[in-house]
Design a protein around this nucleic acid. Structure first.
Lengths: 111, 111
DNA sequence: GCTATATTTCCATAATTATGGAAATATAGT
DNA sequence: ACTATATTTCCATAATTATGGAAATATAGC
């Protein structure tokens, strides 16, 4: 994953309403939830919710599907997995030091 | 971890310069790097870097320690681990559906 | 076609975040 | 005290992001 993509995913989750929405959708499972249900559950006005859903959707973290008059939003598990993998590989903070021989590209200070 | 704290951590990583800085510090290991080296390596003007280091520091993702005239910044592995744990537990997208019986708190639509 | 419900778009406004130069501050060697 | 280097603070400015009401659009039942 490119760093810019990781930043996009992080940014879309770095907002309380959106993190709540995403968490809610993850817990709701693959079928997802209709926008109205999310609005009602999380007490978010529809226009504000729509804005946040669009953000998450643009980032690729959720998908939408129309079903009669309802639009169901569901979490894209793969996308989240990819983000976690990126963070674990590049910014990991495991017990054992990660990437032990990878060095930050430090150019020697020239006099 | 509280959701607000997760949001704070995500927000501090949701910026390309900061994600680069953090990644760099993770790779640099526990000793970290002096601010000037980071500035030079990532080509970030010192004032801008200082701003971003402060953000990461406030979020608790990095620590600073003075060493003679230099200030060394290093990644707080524990903090990152906690974030990954939070995301895995609350927003996880594993192969197997997570939290199978936890349901998003959906109040039934009343007529 | 009318009505009701679901969702989005539009819009103005507010709030937050990012940028980098210049000046200020800190630290240490001479 | 003077000098050099390291880092931060200050500041103005720009850019981005968030909010929610009102209007517009879509969908389906009657």
């Amino acid at each position: 994953m490119e760093i810019k993509h990781a930043v996009t995913l992080l940014a879309s989750l770095a907002q309380e309403a959106r993190l709540e929405i995403f968490r809610c959708l993850v817990q709701a499972g693959p079928d997802g939830l209709a926008a109205g249900i999310i609005s009602q559950t999380l007490q978010i006005p529809s226009s504000t919710l729509s804005f946040h859903l669009k953000e998450l959707s643009h980032a690729g973290l959720i998908s939408a599907r129309q079903e009669s008059r309802f639009i169901y939003y569901s979490a894209n598990y793969d996308s989240m997995n990819a983000l976690l993998a990126y963070l674990t590989e590049n910014c990991c903070a495991g017990e054992s030091p990660c990437c032990p021989d990878v060095q930050c590209q430090v150019t020697p200070i020239k006099e």
